[in-house]
Design a protein around this nucleic acid. Structure first.
Lengths: 204, 204
DNA sequence: TCTGACTACCCCACTAGTGGAATGCCTCGA
DNA sequence: TCGAGGCATTCCACTAGTGGGGTAGTCAGA
């Protein structure tokens, strides 16, 4: 996950200052990234501005420090939308934020695009399950330091059960969402709820 | 998660070649890291060798290419064990591999050390739940591109339910393991406090 | 009045990780 | 015999991220 894309999507939803972005990443967007620093946010903002993806306007806040409000340019929007609707290659860890980040920008996508994403993710995880479930997990030990093999086995067994359950739950949830979206896609197209352009919702 | 620590732990379990390490990361250790490249593995191996944490012996494989078998030095073992049993600061995403990686090296720890780790993780996740559960998640939209707010809301609701369920399941599992370990630990020394195994005894 | 928290921005040295190509040797199957 | 694919290593240019520092103003509390 590139910070770039997260910032672009967040700014596209709502123009804001670097500080606001950092706050968002710590709270509402905390599932997208662990421990993002201020410097990282400002540097990415700077480099995106150089490339013309965002611009800033200085906002004079009487009785407070001036603040730069960043907004995404048309070019930046194109870059973001290209990434968002472009090819998704599932990371090997399903817990990685990539998929969730993309989904969190679902409002910028069509139902079909979200369904495509979902299908790719489902296929990838089913393939992983088929490939790795019930595989021999025993490890060989050849070490000079003292080890507690019994403790290791105990914990490894637990980890394995936990991992298997989590990926199963993940897939089940994906199917659930898929079902809901399929319903929505097959019913007569609902009114677009955009606050601006009105031809967004139904590219068949 | 530093690749360094993963490699050190893996080599400490079983000396191996760079290639083997990469294979391990793709299969048995796939939950530790997504998409690790060969170059990354070899470069880290090189830098660790420079620092004296690992050494290699050239293994002549008759009828095949020579292979470097890396093993951890005493100094490397110390570095690894210091990291493993040292302070653990939970990342903001509980899905991040940090905790799982440490646990996967449980055999190098004492039951008390594992319990300490577990307690830190449990406390951190409970704190997050207390802080963020049932918080207002509504987002403001101020954008120039067309959006499907209804789709966004639908997906956001799903994501939130999924996230809440996952963290609850995570905590439940942690408690489960904690119970098992407390049973196991209750033979050497009686519990000082009722609820929590604070006050670690001697590391094995 | 001082302290510390919060808003807001910027900079730097450094480390970690990506992506891809190149080398060469092996085995196995078509 | 040819090529696909596994084993094993290395190099290189590049981008991303870390961890710390600093500046500066506001505001509330002690």
């Amino acid at each position: 996950m590139k910070l770039e894309h997260i910032l672009l999507g967040t700014l596209l939803r709502q123009p804001s200052t670097g500080y606001d972005l950092k706050k968002f990443l710590d709270v509402g967007g905390r599932f997208m990234r662990s421990n993002t620093t201020m410097s990282q946010v400002y540097r990415v903002l700077g480099s995106m501005e150089e490339r013309g993806w965002v611009t800033h306007a200085v906002e004079h806040r009487p009785g407070a420090q001036n603040a730069k409000t960043f907004r995404v340019t048309d070019e930046g929007a194109t870059v973001f939308l290209d990434w968002l609707t472009g090819p998704y290659t599932p990371p090997s860890r399903f817990e990685d934020p990539d998929f969730g980040v993309r989904l969190s920008f679902a409002a910028f996508m069509s139902v079909d695009q979200v369904l495509r994403l979902l299908d790719i993710e489902i296929d990838a995880r089913l393939a992983q399950i088929a490939r790795f479930r019930d595989r021999d997990r025993s490890l060989t030990w050849d070490t000079t330091v003292p080890v507690d093999l019994e403790l290791g086995d105990l914990v490894a067994g637990w980890s394995h059960r936990k991992g298997a359950d989590s990926i199963d739950a993940h897939v089940a949830r994906l199917h659930e969402l898929r079902g809901v979206l399929l319903d929505r896609a097959s019913s007569p197209a609902p009114e677009p709820t955009s606050d601006r352009a009105d031809e967004a919702t139904t590219p068949a």
